[in-house]
Simulated scan of single mutants.
Amino acid sequence: MGITVTYLSLLVLVPLSMIFLKTATIGPGEIWEAVSSRRALASFGLSLSASLLAAGVNAVFGVLVAWVLVRYRFPGRSVVDALVDLPFALPTAVGGIALTAIYAPRGWLGQFLYPLGIETAFSRLGVVIALTFVGLPFVVRTVQPVLEELDMDHEEAAASLGASRFEIFRRILLPPLWPSILTGFAMAFARALGEYGSVVFVSGNMPFKTEITPLVIMTKLEQYDYAGATALAMVMLIVSFSLLFLLNRLQAWNNARTSSRGRAPAAEQGQAAPPGAHGVAR
């Protein structure tokens, strides 16, 4: 316990606490001026909304990818499985350059999207695409082990009783998958909220339009505005921690509710049968 607490303190607690200590050295008025400026508020809105949207997209399609990898056998499956982990190993700057080359007005996909009025690179949509790219592995790798442990007998029994595919997913698959989906969503959101390398290339970095908060922080650091950068970092830290804590509490509540539902049938089976219940009808 002592080694664990010391290790986490040196790597997480002490560096993060320095943000609050550094912010405490400046006055409340200066902090408010830094975090309430139009540029800062616009970056907050884009970072939060794009991260939530990207995490939501990954929560849906990440489950779909995990389902295909677990339940289907097809040529090249191992290659697809390896591609899922590519955003983990790929430098974020390389990912940003690749996305820009694909979705730019003259890129492989952008040359077909821009004539249709769909602006991808150098737009808010490009930010969402980059954040979705870096967050997909978190959902897939969180849901995939749970899917592998699920017993297919329950699905086959429900199908034999006439349940539709949607009913099987909602009643049989979703309850045990829901905690892992929430965990993957939270991890993808946290990863997207702090992403910098891939977004800085594909967004265009236009103030009030496509500028994310990490970029504003880097800009203030380059201008030696350490107080403003620390104030923005403190806000991002508080927001991300609060949302992650809320999602973790929601997951714990869901696990407790699922466990209580599982104990109820067992308790009912253990009750004594009423008199005459074991009689044989003649």
Rank of each mutant, 00 (worst) to 15 (best):
P115H: 13
L116E: 15
G117M: 10
G117A: 08
A121H: 00
A121N: 12
F122N: 09
L125M: 12
L125S: 08
G126N: 06
G126C: 03
V127K: 14
V128C: 02
A130E: 03
A130V: 00
A130L: 01
V134W: 04
G135S: 11
G135T: 08
P137K: 07
F138K: 11
F138W: 09
F138M: 13
F138Q: 12
R141K: 14
R141V: 06
R141H: 09
T142Y: 09
Q144S: 02
L147S: 12
E148H: 13
E149A: 12
E149W: 07
D151F: 02
M152W: 12
E155G: 04
E156L: 15
A158E: 05
A158K: 07
A158L: 13
A159H: 15
A159V: 13
S160T: 15
S160Q: 15
S160L: 14
A163G: 07
S164I: 07
S164V: 00
R165N: 14
F166E: 07
F166S: 13
E167F: 06
I168S: 05
I168R: 15
F169W: 14
R170L: 15
R171P: 14
I172P: 03
I172L: 07
L173A: 07
L173S: 13
L173R: 14
L174V: 09
P175S: 12
W178F: 14
P179E: 10
P179F: 13
I181N: 08
I181H: 03
L182S: 10
L182T: 11
L182E: 01
T183H: 10
G184V: 02
G184Q: 12
A186P: 05
A186D: 05
A190D: 01
R191L: 07
R191S: 06
A192T: 00
L193W: 13
L193S: 06
E195K: 11
E195L: 00
Y196G: 02
G197T: 10
G197M: 08
S198H: 02
S198F: 02
S198N: 01
S198E: 06
V202K: 05
V202C: 04
V202Y: 03
F208A: 04
K209F: 01
K209G: 00
T210D: 06
E211W: 09
I212T: 04
I212L: 09
I217M: 09
M218S: 04
M218V: 02
M218E: 05
T219E: 14
E222P: 03
Y224F: 15
Y224G: 02
D225L: 01
A227R: 08
G228N: 05
A229Y: 07
T230I: 10
A231D: 08
L232I: 11
L232K: 00
A233F: 06
M234Y: 08
V235H: 07
V235E: 11
V235P: 10
